Amino acid sequence: MAYDRRDRAIFGATSATTATHDVGLLVLRLVVGLTMAAHGTQKLFGWFDGPGFTATGKGFSMSGYPAGQAMAAIAGLSETLGGLGLALGFLTPLAGAALTGTFINVLAVRGLSTYFAPKGVELESVLFTAVVALTLTGPGRFSVDHLLPVLRESRPRYAVLGLVLGAVAGFVVLLIRD
């Protein structure tokens, strides 16, 4: 804790600044995490006017993935559990890994030729950037991870490892796509 106080003193951060920082991270985590969890439940259960599991599996098959149903399960679970983990600030590096792998595939399938809506990837790019930023900065004090000393003390190492794991998994899944 002494290091944190010295660091804050050097950069002029006050306890009010630190509190607003943590509240800002909480708001961002909740919006991005719950958005991703909702997308996952659209795939898995058809909630929120989503396509549901069977249609999502067919969509994966049409996009060149083998075993469309298995890919629908992987994508749906990655988005749902990764989104909930991000929203709660629970195992944030693993949540970031799950969502990173998902976004690599989303961007590859959608293509990068058009950025803006209706056929562009602007929303996906913003959400992916927010996931990377939250994984690297950490979830803040108002999170489950704050209660886990191993994640509080070694945040940079676990954050980078989580993003690398997600990128590797995402590219491996892309390699099996036709």
Rank of each mutant, 00 (worst) to 15 (best):
T129R: 11
G101Y: 09
E79L: 14
G82A: 04
R141H: 12
M71V: 12
P66Q: 06
D49Y: 11
L112F: 04
L88D: 01
K43A: 10
E124Q: 11
F60N: 05
L99H: 09
F60V: 07
G64K: 07
A55C: 11
K119M: 11
A95H: 02
G89P: 02
P51V: 15
T92I: 03
A117Q: 01
T54H: 07
L81F: 06
A67P: 01
I104E: 06
G85P: 05
T100D: 11
V106F: 01
L107T: 09
F45P: 04
T137G: 14
A98Q: 05
T114S: 15
F60I: 04
L127Y: 06
L107I: 10
S61V: 09
G50L: 02
Y65M: 09
G50E: 02
S113M: 00
K43C: 08
F48I: 08
A55S: 10
L99M: 13
F60W: 10
A130E: 07
Q69K: 13
V121Y: 08
A70D: 02
I104P: 00
P139K: 14
T135Y: 01
W47L: 14
P66I: 05
V132D: 09
A72G: 04
F90P: 00
A98M: 14
F60Y: 12
T80N: 10
T137F: 12
A130V: 00
S61C: 09
S61A: 15
G89A: 05
N105S: 13
G83M: 02
G96A: 06
T54C: 03
V131I: 12
G120R: 04
T54E: 08
M62H: 14
A72Q: 01
T114E: 15
S143P: 08
P139N: 10
Q69S: 15
A130P: 07
G89V: 01
G59R: 07
S61I: 08
L81Q: 01
A130K: 03
A87K: 08
F53D: 00
F45T: 12
A130Q: 13
V144F: 03
F53E: 02
G85R: 04
G85S: 10
G64T: 13
G138D: 00
L44R: 05
G59P: 05
G83Y: 02
T100S: 07
E79R: 13
G64Y: 06
G89Q: 03
L107M: 14
P139Y: 08
P51Y: 01
A97H: 08
G59L: 01
A97N: 00
G68T: 07
L136F: 11
V126F: 11
L107N: 09
G59T: 03
K58Y: 08
P93N: 06
K119E: 10
A70H: 09
A67Q: 12
D49N: 15
S113Q: 14
T100K: 04
T100G: 06
